[in-house]
Nucleic acid binder design. Sequence first.
DNA 1: CTTAAACATCGACAAGTGTAAATATTTACC
DNA 2: GGTAAATATTTACACTTGTCGATGTTTAAG
Lengths: 116, 116
Amino acid sequence: MSLELTPVQTVACCSPLSREPLTESEAEGIVPLLKALGDPVRLRLMSLVASHEGGEACVCDLNDAFELSQPTISHHLKVLHEAGLLEREKRGVWVYYRARTDALSGLAALIGGQAQ
Amino acid sequence: MSLELTPVQTVACCSPLSREPLTESEAEGIVPLLKALGDPVRLRLMSLVASHEGGEACVCDLNDAFELSQPTISHHLKVLHEAGLLEREKRGVWVYYRARTDALSGLAALIGGQAQ
DNA sequence: CTTAAACATCGACAAGTGTAAATATTTACC
DNA sequence: GGTAAATATTTACACTTGTCGATGTTTAAG
C-alpha cells in the first residue's frame, strides 16, 4: 500500500488519480484495497468496525450482524486485514478488529480529489 | 432563530462509513463503484481519462495504452460507464469518455472521513 | 454502393471468488 | 487434564469475471 504523497503532490490541483495516469504498479498497489471494499459484506463489516464505539469490534459482535456462517465472516475479516484496512488484536478468547482510518482516508484522497 | 443541533449533527464526526453501520441496501449501492475501480486495468483507464487534457479521452487513445485486445478495453469502459464513473459521447466515428469527478469525490467522501 | 475504420456485442473458456461443512487451534475455566 | 467456547483453516463447489476471437454496427470517404 503505497499511498504516500509528497508535499508537492499534495498541493497540486486534484487527486493522484486525476492528476496523471497511474502506472501499472501504482494501480496494482491500490486495487487490493478497492477489491477488499468491493463486496457488500466486507463493506458493511468495515463500516461496523469503524463506527463501533471505541473504534473496535469483537468478531462475536460481527457474526451476529449477518446471516452468514462464522467461517465466511472470518474469511472476509482476513481479506480486510490482509489489505491493511483492519488491525487485528487477540485478547483472551476474543479477537478485536480495529479500522485503519489512515488507510481509508489515504484511499479517499487518492481517488477523490475534485477536478481543477 | 437559534441554531439547533440535530442528533445527526451531534454525532457527526467522520465519513458515513465510519459514522454508523451501513445498511445492506446502502452497501449494495456503493459496492458497484468499488468493484468497477477494483481492477487494475479499469483503475488505470479511469485515471487516464480523468487526467487527460480536456477531461476526456477517445477510445482509440485508450486502446494504445494497454497490451489488451480492443474488445477487452471496450468491456472495461462499459463497466465503468454502467457504474456511473464515465460519461460516454459519440462524435462521428469516435467515442469519447469523460470522468464523472462528482462520482469520484462522492465515493471518496463516503469512505474517507478522518476519525474524530 | 462499396469499402474501411472505430467501437460494441457475442460466445467461450480459464481463473478468481463467496460460501458453507468439517476440522483444527487457542484460551479460559472446572 | 478435560471440556467448552471463540476463531481460524481446510476443502469443495457453484458462481462470477477477465480475456480473446469472431462477428455485428455505425460512420465517413471514395
